[in-house]
Computed example of a mutant assay.
Amino acid sequence: MRMDRERDAAGPLVRGFGPAGFKVDAPDGAMGVYPALLLTATRADMWAPPPLDALDALALAPLLGDPIEFVLLGTGTDLRRPPRALIAALEARGVGIEAMDSRAAARAWGVLRAEDRRVAAALYPLEG
């Protein structure tokens, strides 16, 4: 799926997604495709996520360096609940977590960044 959106948000934006991954462009015009992805307001990074039931704060550490309201967690092709221990660890830091399937999370990322919300995202692959 391709998502057309004017560049009205700071930082990297997800421009589309499909079986190969998430198509992301950066403010400098660079474009990349990431099978799994970590997003902050300033960068997009390739991610090798653990199985969802083993996801912990350490796996999300690159997202937690800047003050954020919550982590947008894309759980792959289907919505799945994150581990309770992860939710508790993030809440102890004052950070929320919103889980949804990765397609919905990719779309929500652009909307939230356009609103200049302080969020980060971790997107599991859409295949495999």
Rank of each mutant, 00 (worst) to 15 (best):
Gly11Met: 15
Leu13Arg: 15
Val33Phe: 05
Leu73His: 02
Gly16Met: 08
Pro35Arg: 15
Ala44Phe: 01
Ala9Lys: 14
Pro12Glu: 05
Asp53Ile: 03
Ala54Lys: 10
Leu79Trp: 11
Pro62Ala: 07
Pro19Asp: 02
Pro83Gly: 14
Arg15Ser: 14
Glu98Asn: 00
Glu115Met: 08
Leu90Ile: 03
Ala36Thr: 09
Ala108Arg: 12
Gly74Ser: 03
Ala9Cys: 13
Pro19Tyr: 00
Leu58Cys: 00
Asp53Ala: 08
Arg107Val: 09
Pro125Asn: 06
Asp78His: 12
Asp28Gln: 01
Ala104Gly: 15
Thr42Gln: 14
Tyr124Gly: 12
Ile97Met: 09
Gly74Asp: 12
Gly76Leu: 11
Glu91Ile: 00
Arg5Phe: 11
Glu91Val: 00
Leu52Gln: 06
Pro27Asp: 13
Leu72Asn: 04
Pro51Ala: 06
Asp25Thr: 11
Ala92Thr: 04
Arg84Gln: 13
Glu91Lys: 15
Ala57Asn: 02
Arg113Glu: 01
Asp56Trp: 10
Leu37Lys: 08
Ala41Lys: 11
Gly110Trp: 05
Leu39Asp: 02
Phe22Ala: 01
Gly96Phe: 04
Ile87Leu: 03
Phe17Cys: 12
Asp45Ala: 08
Leu90Pro: 06
Leu86Met: 10
Ala120Ser: 10
Gly94Met: 07
Asp78Trp: 07
Leu55Arg: 09
Ala85His: 13
Ala9Val: 12
Val119His: 10
Asp56Met: 11
Arg113Gly: 06
Gly110Arg: 07
Pro125Lys: 11
Arg117Gly: 10
Ala57Lys: 08
Pro67Arg: 08
Asp101Arg: 04
Asp78Met: 13
Ala9Ser: 13
Arg43Pro: 01
Asp116Trp: 04
Arg117Ser: 09
Pro82Lys: 07
Ala54Leu: 15
Pro67Phe: 02
Ala30Ile: 00
Leu58Tyr: 00
Val14Ser: 08
Lys23Leu: 12
Asp56Gln: 12
Arg2Gly: 08
Asp45Pro: 00
Arg93His: 06
Phe17Ser: 12
Gly65Phe: 02
Phe17Glu: 04
Glu98Lys: 14
Gly11His: 11
Leu37Pro: 11
Gly18His: 08
Glu6Gly: 10
Ala36Asp: 02
Pro125Ala: 06
Leu55Ile: 01
Met100Ser: 11
Arg80Glu: 07
Trp109Ala: 13
Thr75Gly: 10
Arg117Met: 09
Arg5Trp: 12
Phe70Tyr: 13
Ala88Trp: 02
Ala36Phe: 02
Pro27Arg: 09
Ala26Ser: 09
Asp66His: 15
Arg80Val: 04
Pro125Tyr: 07
Trp47Leu: 07
Ser102Pro: 09
Ala41Tyr: 14
Met1Phe: 06
Gly16Tyr: 07
Val14Glu: 00
Thr40Glu: 09
Pro49Ser: 10
Leu55Glu: 07
Thr40Gln: 06
Gly74Val: 10
Asp101Ala: 01
Asp56Tyr: 05
Leu52Ala: 02
Pro62Val: 05
Ala92Arg: 03
Gly76Pro: 13
Gly76Gln: 01
Ala122Ser: 08
Glu115Asp: 03
Ala85Gly: 10
Ala48Cys: 03
Val119Pro: 12
Arg93Asp: 05
Thr40Tyr: 01
Asp56Gly: 14
Ala88Gly: 00
Ala122Leu: 08
Gly94Ala: 03
Asp8Asn: 09
Ala59Gly: 05
Leu60Asn: 10
Glu69Thr: 13
Asp45Val: 02
Val14Arg: 05
Tyr34His: 09
Pro67Trp: 02
Asp53Tyr: 00
Tyr124Gln: 10
Gly128Phe: 01
Gly18Gln: 03
Met1Trp: 03
Ala105His: 01
